[in-house]
Design a binder for these strands. Sequence first.
DNA 1: CCTACCGATCGGTAGG
DNA 2: CCTACCGATCGGTAGG
Lengths: 208, 208
Amino acid sequence: MPRRSAADAALTRASIIDRSVAVASVEGLEGLTIGRLATDLDMSKAGVIGHFGTKEELQLAALSAARAVYKREVWDRAAAVAPEPGRKRLLAIADAWMSYLARDVFPGGCFITAASCEFDDRPGRVREAIRAQHEEWLRVLAREAQAAIAAGDLPRGTRADDVAFTMNAIAMGTNQARHLAQDPDAPSRGWRAMRTLLHAPRARRRFA
Amino acid sequence: MPRRSAADAALTRASIIDRSVAVASVEGLEGLTIGRLATDLDMSKAGVIGHFGTKEELQLAALSAARAVYKREVWDRAAAVAPEPGRKRLLAIADAWMSYLARDVFPGGCFITAASCEFDDRPGRVREAIRAQHEEWLRVLAREAQAAIAAGDLPRGTRADDVAFTMNAIAMGTNQARHLAQDPDAPSRGWRAMRTLLHAPRARRRFA
DNA sequence: CCTACCGATCGGTAGG
DNA sequence: CCTACCGATCGGTAGG
């Protein structure tokens, strides 16, 4: 029984994180258990937790992996379509965001929203990591909104941080409509709300 | 050791539910444990669970109690201020809603939002109860919006269910801003977003 | 409403 | 990466 190579170990670690993200998007980061992961991955519990040391480290690793997925699926997609800051890019972000929800990138819906609801009143490292991620994302949105305001593409008196706040709120509502109410039209509804917020014409848009 | 009277039993039951709502608003409905309640209430676990039979029944009882609080703090307050359906009452609802969040009626923030995030992908009776409550509330909001539209108080082409959707989204975002980001101005921000949505002038408003 | 108890599972460790 | 194990806690029950 030789120890496996460092490369093999890294692959195992990645597979544990992948599975953790999927499970936690449905069961929550606390509902994620080492025993459940061990069963799913045909490993021993010690083999699972050995890669992380504690459950909290595993939760932080899952959160970080989810963040990378989120960035790729929302920000990178939008930035590729709209390379300049401003209202066009906000609309591209809204589009990519609704598409991300429509495609069920995480089986239990938006991982970040779920983690945020679960930890918003539980002090600790996990909560601080979620908070830092969330605030960074709101700053990105506000920066875009500021460019749109400077270009005269949003009504005078509009506050950039209010636009960021409401876009995030609409995404949370869309996630809820899709998962709790199981409304297949949730992303279209969210899209309409985003366009109204951004004062864009109400072009119809189908998400799948 | 005589058995206590039915009235005493009802009081005990009510105290268990009260405590359950408070604990679950922070720890979640699954994080709520019978042992924790027993410790908090200086009772035995059997004494706690005996009133409900199963944890699921306890969760349903807590949800129902939270719904009553929510109705009293948001709907009843708004209806007292604005007896007629329409935009004025939507503004009164927005005001009561932000006040409910500002006053931290539940220690862990909006119980319904937390429960919704936690159960939105977990089939079962709890999820169906949350869903039914949520959809009923959205219908109430849409009915108000429909009256506002009929009275010409919202722009032509506005959809009543979209107004309900976005109001709910703004409340979710406000709850997140208050608890995750610990932003004391979250209710004021939510209030601004509600007024923008409802095309009302941006009167300043302090919440506490 | 209590004591006493059940099997299952939790996160985590020792040692290899 | 495994087996074997730890104390703690889980939801729930029997019996009074």
